[in-house]
Structures are given as C-alpha cells and as structure tokens.
Computed example of a mutant assay.
Amino acid sequence: MISRNQRINAFIQLGNFLTDPKHVLEIEDWITSANRRNNWFTPENSALSLAAIGTEFLNPQKLTAWADRYHEPDQIKKVGVIMAGNIPAVGFHDALSVLISGHILLAKPSSDDLVLIQMLLEKLAELEPAFTENIQFVDRLNDADAYIATGSNNTARYFHYYFSKKPNIIRKNRTSIGILTGAESADELAALGEDIFQYFGLGCRNVSKLFVPAGYDFTKFYESITRFTNTCLHHHKYFNNYEYNKSILLINRTFHYDNGFLMLTESPAFVSPISVVHFEYYDSIGDLKLTVQGSAENIQCIVGSQDLDIPEVIPFGQAQKPGLSDYADSIETMEFLARL
C-alpha cells in the first residue's frame, strides 16, 4: 500500500513538473496532441487548465491541507470513474481524489479528453512507480466496487440503473449563473466575460444565464466584453455554433440582442446553447433568492457582486477557478471515498 505521504508527494512532484519551465516542450506536445484530437481544446485553453492544476490543485500546502481533512478508508476499493470531456482535463479532480484517498482508479476518460488525462496519469506513475498498479485505464467498469460518473441528464438515468447496487456519485447537467444589479464596473463586466467565454462556455462552471433588474441596459456589458471578439470569431467551431443559433433565433423571430459573436435572449431556461446566454429579469433580490434556491440542483456556481446578500456568490471572473474543495454538484467526493 502506498502511504499517504507518498501519494501526496507524488502529486506535488506532478505539480512541479507542470509548473517547471524546463518541461515546457513536453507539455506543449501534450497540448498539440489534445488539440488535434479535439478542436475545442485550443492550445491556450489546455495550457490554462494544466497551469491551474499545477498551481492550484497541486500546490503543496493546499493539497496537504485538503487531503488531511479526510481519514484513510478502512479498505482499498476499486473506484470506476466515468469522466466528462467538455473542457481540458476536467476529469483530473476525480482521479486526484480517488488516488490521494488510497483507492485504485479504474479510469474511463471521455474520448474528447483522452490525451491530457492519459498524459497526466502516466506522468504521475512515472514520477511514483508505486502508483502504476493503482492507475488502470479501462473500457468496462464491471470490476469496480464504487462509481463516480459524470454525464448528461439522460446518461445519469442510465448510470443510476446500472450502478445502483454499489456506492456511487452520479452527476447530471449543471450550469452557472450571473447576477447583475446595474452598478457593475466595466472591469467587473469584463471579468464576467471570462466566466462566460473561458473554454468557450462548455463547462458547468461557465455562466449561461444572467439575472438582471427590470429595464437593464446591456450596452455597457457588450462594450466590456469586446476583447473576446477575436477568440470567438476566429474559432470555427464556436463561430459555426454562433451562425447556427443566430439562424434559429431569426427563423423563430425570437427577440434577442447580438454583438456579432454573443447573443442574449430572454428565457427561463438555465442552460443555453453555445454563443447564446439567456437572461431573466428580477424585481427584487428577495424574489431572486427564492428563484435561485428553488433551482439549486441546476446551478453549479453563482457569480456577482460581493454586496449581494446571497452567501453562495463568488466574485466575477472566478467561476472557472475552482479550488480543491469546490466539488462538482456540491457532493464531497473525498468524504464519499473515505467512507467506502
């Protein structure tokens, strides 16, 4: 059995590898391969994700403090992890959780995010050979003692059916929202643009819905996000989505705002198509609180001004900067693993 200190030290070494400039060429090879496999994974976005893993998740002090909060499991189990593939290396946190807790990882990466997950875990085993037996890439999860699965609402029903007889965490579709009051500065609105456009809006932590006061004027918002123009217009997949969704809004004669790369349309739905952000008016913060509370199972995170009297709100620009304890669907993965 690999000791907790060995496990922590191995991940710290991986973090050092990711942040050490002398390894930049090897990491660039990973990034190029990931982009060839999935055009959504631009070199900039993959580099951003790997840098966040190296500096935030694998920060020695943060990693040690996080791991030390949880007791060692009584028995080592095989944990099957079905990973999402919507943004680069999105399944890494689950892999980290399983391995740092001492269990055996049966990893089933998404075909959209195969390269970065495989490279990260292979590098980890290279740095700490004792991990070799604890990291297994599999096509089927029949041998797993427990499951962590991330997918759509439809696949979640499938997961519940097949995995119900063993301990499991099943995650469904979630998205994130932004709350505007009209008093935001241009810098805050530009930071909101990061929450919307980072990873092209494909992540559950990306803002796809805005709540705005009645009569809100979107002019300042649009003026504040112009720096994302080239990113959106020059990425063919994003721009194809923009043109397609624009045609749907026009054909259906749906009222919308449009700045040439992002459309805003009023809708009660939380999830919006790529290149579209939904908005909804509110009359008071009190009413908005009730709306948010009633839809909590659909919301991953909330961005807004820190003056809002809503405890879950995080600052603009922080949606795609989760910490180790920012668990998907607010389910403490490490606590689940400790109880197995």
Rank of each mutant, 00 (worst) to 15 (best):
H236R: 14
A190F: 07
S176W: 00
Q318D: 10
L233I: 15
F159R: 04
F228S: 00
P322M: 11
A34W: 06
F270T: 08
L106E: 06
A296T: 09
K172E: 09
C232F: 00
F261A: 02
G201E: 02
Q118H: 12
F336E: 05
P311N: 10
A10Y: 01
I285T: 12
E26F: 14
Q118E: 14
F17K: 01
F255V: 15
S101C: 09
N39G: 12
N230Y: 03
P273W: 11
I53M: 06
F57N: 00
S295K: 14
I82H: 04
P322I: 11
F239C: 08
M119H: 14
Y162Q: 06
D326K: 07
A47E: 15
N39S: 14
A34G: 05
F211R: 09
G102I: 07
S295I: 01
F270N: 13
N39A: 15
E194C: 07
R205N: 02
S152Q: 07
D283T: 14
T254W: 03
F270Q: 10
H160A: 12
D94W: 10
E188K: 01
N35L: 09
K108F: 07
E72G: 05
W66F: 14
F228E: 04
N298W: 09
A156R: 06
A52Y: 15
T229P: 00
S33I: 08
T175A: 05
I169F: 03
F137I: 03
L25M: 12
M334C: 04
A47H: 15
F316I: 05
S275H: 08
N240K: 10
N9G: 13
F159K: 06
N153V: 01
Q293W: 01
S49Q: 11
F17H: 04
I12D: 05
F239L: 13
P268R: 12
E56P: 00
S110C: 02
F221E: 09
T265M: 10
E133D: 15
D326G: 08
I196A: 00
D139A: 12
F218T: 13
A190I: 04
W66M: 07
A156W: 09
D326M: 09
Y327S: 11
Y216I: 13
F279W: 15
F218P: 04
Q198S: 12
H160G: 05
F218H: 09
A296N: 13
I248S: 08
D145Q: 04
G151P: 03
G201F: 01
K220S: 06
R36C: 09
D217K: 14
L262F: 07
R174V: 03
F57Q: 00
S101H: 04
I135H: 11
S295L: 15
Y147C: 02
Y147R: 06
S284M: 04
S295F: 06
F239K: 06
A146T: 02
H103F: 07
N168G: 13
I100E: 08
E56N: 15
N230A: 15
V207R: 00
G193N: 08
R4I: 05
K237H: 07
F228V: 08
N86L: 05
R205A: 01
S3T: 15
D217R: 15
L250K: 13
L202A: 09
I76S: 12
L63S: 04
C232L: 09
I8E: 12
G201I: 02
R4D: 04
G91I: 04
V207K: 02
V303N: 06
R205T: 00
L250P: 01
F131W: 05
D309R: 12
D258Q: 12
N173M: 08
N298K: 13
P109D: 01
N240Q: 11
